[in-house]
Design a protein around this nucleic acid. Structure first.
Lengths: 244, 244
DNA sequence: GAGAAATAGATTGCATGCAATTACGACTGC
DNA sequence: GCAGTCGTAATTGCATGCAATCTATTTCTC
């Protein structure tokens, strides 16, 4: 067996991604039952890759499953979202501490500094646009990924990925519903505050201050958690039935 | 679709457990390639449930995978083991803090006290036996599970399960190789020390001292980590090539 | 009319055939 | 003697048929 990672993608893999996108995108609603034949027809494949995709998405926590009954999109609630955030902030905090204690690889340190410079350029540009907002979202993701990956811990990486899926769904939903505060979360001024957090975290990591880096990252993500909580709660109080 | 959890087990599920047991038990060695037809014949099923089982075990981190090439048992190293422990102690620490802050459900508190009493009986009985050691192992597992489950966080639970598989493999291997210190880890005197940790953790949780409970649980598991590290390192130095 | 039983329809889970891709060994050229 | 190429055998990934199981509607009983 060849050790290199293949670039080839099997039909099962692309089917998995397609169905995940349908769920995250909201085309498949929570509680909705997923029939293999229907999805197979929709995606132009047979039931075999669909079956494997559903199995994978079940293990990712997006689907419910009962043997001989089939799969259904999980009903997500506020508590589940907060639970995901609790785990994520803990793991990313751990990543920061480990990296700070071990010391950053020079290449990663450069990449982080580069990331901060680019973000500074984007966020302090006078004319703020949707394109700039997307650019910041990408830089924000890259920043977190750089730190997580340099911890060099596959379990940590997997755990973070696991807890990222659900918030992604809520994020899209809330933006779709049009909660203005959530939109503002990726607005210019609040993003500038987030960037200040990023800068201080990098400082702490470079100074090998593990506990400080850990605490700041935890607090940084905790802000996200609380923003989500407030706005989702508000939405729940308004409409009584939320459809994430 | 019925919401209750089914008791029925599909062939895919039992096949998954069977192959996992083969890996954990050491019948399938690291690096060994897993051929679908071979495993299907061995387990008396067709290739379909085997394929799904391999996919699941791949997501659990036990197997390597390359499209069109197949699966192979992952090569585990000391760093991977330590990485798993780092994540596990962090998550179990988090569980303790959450439970302490939220407050224990009376039923769980009773179950924990009951667990400590049973453990005390087993560990301070003058005649120590293999049966008693197994009983302690079960009680130890139950103790940790009680705390994890009462945190009521599926992501935390999944993360801990994920990081438990690899240590299990090493544990079996080391006992098989016959590292006497590892055997002693579940001996009477060291188990008594572990029980003292358990008792203090329960005290802290009941007293709603979140940070204290978190730190003690982390330290408690860190002891395991260091024991494993020392003895695996010793084994590596002796034999130069370790076959977990 | 309400609840239980039964039957029909649909859907899952599994076995298997087949095409696409890969591993592996022999062969050739240098 | 070694690297590169080609051909064959084996293995994977996918489509599909079929049996077991579940859901839903109807029918039967009290």
């Amino acid at each position: 067996m060849n050790n290199i990672t293949r670039v080839t993608r099997t039909r099962s893999q692309s089917t998995t991604e397609a169905i995940r996108a349908l769920i995250v995108g909201g085309e498949l609603r929570p509680g909705e039952r997923l029939q293999a034949q229907m999805l197979a027809d929709k995606l132009g494949v047979s039931r075999t890759p669909v079956a494997e995709a559903l199995s994978v998405l079940h293990k990712e926590g997006l689907l419910e499953y009962a043997p001989n009954c089939g799969y259904g999109v999980k009903q997500f609630d506020l508590d589940g979202l907060l639970a995901a955030f609790d785990v994520r902030l803990t793991l990313e905090g751990l990543a920061c501490r480990l990296v700070a204690e071990k010391g950053l690889a020079p290449a990663t340190a450069d990449a982080l500094r580069e990331n901060l410079v680019r973000a500074e350029e984007v966020l302090f540009d006078p004319d703020w646009s949707d394109a700039k907002r997307d650019r910041w979202r990408a830089l924000n993701l890259q920043f977190h990924d750089l730190l997580i990956d340099s911890a060099n811990n596959t379990y940590l990486r997997a755990g973070v990925d696991h807890t990222r899926i659900l918030p992604l769904i809520y994020d899209r939903t809330l933006r779709h519903v049009g909660v203005e505060e959530v939109l503002r979360r990726f607005g210019q001024s609040s993003s500038q505050l987030a960037l200040r957090d990023h800068q201080r975290i990098v400082d702490a990591v470079l100074a090998r201050q593990g506990t400080r880096a850990e605490n700041m990252m935890k607090e940084h993500i905790f802000n996200n958690r609380e923003t989500m909580r407030r706005h989702l709660k508000k939405l729940l109080d308004e409409s009584d039935t939320v459809q994430p």
